[in-house]
Every structure is written in C-alpha cells, then in structure tokens.
Write a protein that binds this DNA or RNA. Structure first.
Lengths: 220, 220
DNA sequence: CTATGAACTGGACGTTCGTCCAAGTCAATA
DNA sequence: TATTGACTTGGACGAACGTCCAGTTCATAG
C-alpha cells in the first residue's frame, strides 16, 4: 500500500505522499464528506498537527488528493486499456478492450463512486475546477489513443473524428458506471457496454478506401 | 416559488413543504455539503427549532429533500419529453425530443449538479439507497414511454427491447450532462446527443414487418 | 369567554470541525 | 561534539454543527 516507510521522521515530500494515500483510503472507504483532517491523521498514524505542517489548508490537501486521483485514473486509463492485437476484426478488439475496462471498473466500485464525488466537489469549488477538467482531458486522451490504435491495427479508418467517438464512449461509460453503482446490476452494464462497442465498430471505413457509400453492418 | 403563504402559523404539512423548498433552494445554490439545518431555517425565514419540530432528524429532512428532487425529476421527465407527432420520420422526432430534453437540462445546471450530488450522497448512505433507485426507475419509465410512443407514432417497431434502448439513452444523457457541467461546452453536448438520436433511429424496423434482414441506414 | 393544544421562539448543550502554536525530538551539519 | 533546523507532538482555540427543551403565542374547540 505504502511505498514509503511508516516509521517516524520522514521527509516533507514523503510525508505528504503518505498523507495523500491516507486521505485516499479514507475517502474511498467513507466518502469525501467523512474525510476530515483528523481521520486522515489517524489513518496515517500521525499527530493532527502533522497534516497542517505538510499542507497549509484542508483545501490544499483536497487539491492534492484530487490531483492524485486524476493521475491514478490517467495511469489506469493508459495501462488498463489493453488492445488485443490478434483480434480478428475491429468489433472483437473493441469488445475485449471495453470488457477489460469494465473489469477494472467492476473491481473498484468505491473508487468509481469517489471519482463522481470528486467531480461534483470540484464543480462546487471554483479553485478545483481545473482538476475536474484535467480529469476529463486525461480520459479523453486515453480513449482517443485506444480508438486510433484499434482502427489502425485493423487497417481501418474512423468515419468521424476520433475525438468525437472517444467523447461519446467516455460519456457512455460514465453513465453506465453511475447507473451500475445504483442498481448493482453488473451484467446489464456489461451488456450495454458490449452493445456500444458493436456500435463503435460500425463507425469505421474498413480496409481500403472505397467509394463514398455508407457502410452497411449494424450489430445487435 | 412557494405555493404556501410565508406568514407565521401554518400547518405542519405546509411548513414541511416550505422547509423542503428552502432546503432545495440552498442545496441547488451551494450544494449538499452547505445545506445545514441553520441555513435551511434562515432561507425559510423561521427559527431554528422549527426544522426539528417538523423533522425528527436532519436525515429525515434530507430524505424528504431527495424524494422531492426525484419526484420533480419524474414530473419533468414525463412532461418535458414532448414528442413532435408531425415529424416526418423517427430520426427527426427523436432529435427534436432529445433537443427539448437538452434545453431543459441546459437551463438548469445547478439542478443537474445537485442530482449527481444526491445520487452519490444516497450511495454513501444505505438508508437512502432506495431513493436513488427510485430516481433511475422513474427516468427509465419516462424514457421507455417516449421511445415506445415515438416508434408507434411512426409506425415502426424497435429491434431490441425498449428497456435496453431507454437505459442506453439515459446512460448517455447522464454522461454527456456530467461532462458538460465540467467543460461547459453546450454545443458539443448538443451535437453528441443529436448523434445518439441518429443512432437510436437505426435501431428500428420501419413500417411493415419485413424479412429478418438487417436494416441499412447509418447516419453521421 | 375560556381552555386546550398545536405551532413557534430563543437559547443552551455537547460534539466535531479546521486551525494554530509553544515545546519537544532527532538527524545532519559545522 | 555541539548546534542548528527540519520534523513531530499534544493540546488549545473559536466557530459551526445537530440536537434538545422550557416557555410563549395564538387559532380554535367547547
């Protein structure tokens, strides 16, 4: 969990990192509202004063926490979105990629909930708005990279800008995840995402450049 | 704003309604975290004790607030989703319906944000989980009703269960709305919703029952 | 008109919050 | 080794919170 020693006396930077990890643990378990300075200190096993020695404000701690979450999300987005290069066609490749994405989502419901909490929290606090924007930009970039890679691996090109498709995919995943958190029906969520992958596969011009005729395959 | 008189001495039921309205006003303006008992009392122009005279707990007030929000949302969903019966085809009808929905969303960003806050709040509080579920059930029912009506008005039938399409539409609208709250780009949100309406229109078997062949139109 | 009880008032209580600080501790430097 | 400064401690502070209650007001039933 911690890549720094939990013993006493550590550098400011290390202590900061530990406190952010502690804040993340508390926020993931019980939500942002329950993430108080005292609980963070308790979780980290340090005195209360240490937190304000490392962070000027609670706001500064929260900003660091939000940044950490966004960074982790960005890493998970670029590492987690694995593309099966040996897939027979684009639809299959997209389906397996989205299935992998969903697996990582389904395994961490509390983290997903925390992400929505951070977003709404940032939207209420003007000084944190940039964090929320960075969150979406990182996800957007990861999604675009995956879609571009998937298409080129199958020798196809997208019919409309990848940015649009990526944004649509992100919105859909966001909505499906939130609903899953409410109703707890993982199977339905999986089916919906799979269906969307099928839809995405229809938004491509396969192989060689042909005439401007529309494509004809629709799934589902 | 208030359909009850703001004068002193009102019945318990009326006072409850007024306090819920006041809580809604505070929560909409400054978020759930800022919605304290004192601010609600101040907003309603009553003494602090009145709130606990009308509600046993703050939890009870919040439960009533959440229920009110869900009910309002349900009403907006069934009244706001107007279908243009004179539309030439299904795609046009769906586009205008979703455009109308978006208009009501764009006009009330704070209310939308509050909806997400209520959802995450309810997900952290087990006793409010049923409220979140009701919220989605109401939206689901409204979306299903619209889709069924739209198809039958155009003499067409959906290729897959309306429940699935409605759920997909809700997830997409949810995701697009949340992203719009972050980046503030209403135009892009509108374009994405319009594109989704086009996609929906491809999920239909037009007019008469034909052979089991797939449909061929794709938009965008 | 009187009495009754629902509606309301103002203030108090204990808790928890974020913030702050004077003093203590220890590793590194001179 | 002596000293300096970064790091830590435990407790204190005021503010805001949810909760509670004894007393007051007032419409209404008898």
């Amino acid at each position: 969990m911690f890549d720094v020693a939990v013993t006493a006396r550590m550098s400011l930077a290390d202590r900061r990192a530990q406190l952010i990890d502690a804040a993340l643990a508390v926020a993931t378990a019980d939500g942002i509202a329950a993430t108080t300075v005292r609980r963070v200190a308790e979780q980290a096993g340090v005195a209360l004063g240490v937190v304000h020695y490392c962070f000027a404000d609670k706001d500064e701690l929260f900003a660091a926490l939000a940044t950490k979450i966004v960074d982790d999300l960005s890493v998970a987005g670029t590492e987690g979105l694995i593309l099966d290069e040996s897939a027979p066609d684009l639809a299959t490749a997209l389906r397996s990629a989205i299935a992998g994405l969903w697996a990582s989502i389904e395994a961490t419901p509390n983290e997903q909930l925390l992400t929505y909490e951070i977003t709404t929290y940032a939207l209420r606090d003007r000084s944190l708005r940039s964090v929320a924007i960075r969150q979406y930009e990182a996800s957007q970039a990861a999604a675009e990279a995956l879609l571009s890679l998937a298409a080129s691996a199958c020798g196809a090109t997208w019919l409309c800008p990848v940015a649009d498709l990526a944004a649509e995919a992100l919105a859909f995943v966001d909505g499906v995840t939130l609903r899953w958190l409410v109703d707890g029906d993982a199977h339905r969520a999986q089916v919906r995402l799979d269906g969307f992958a099928g839809y995405l596969a229809t938004q491509v011009k396969p192989r060689r450049r042909s005439a401007k005729k529309k494509t004809e395959r629709t799934s589902r």
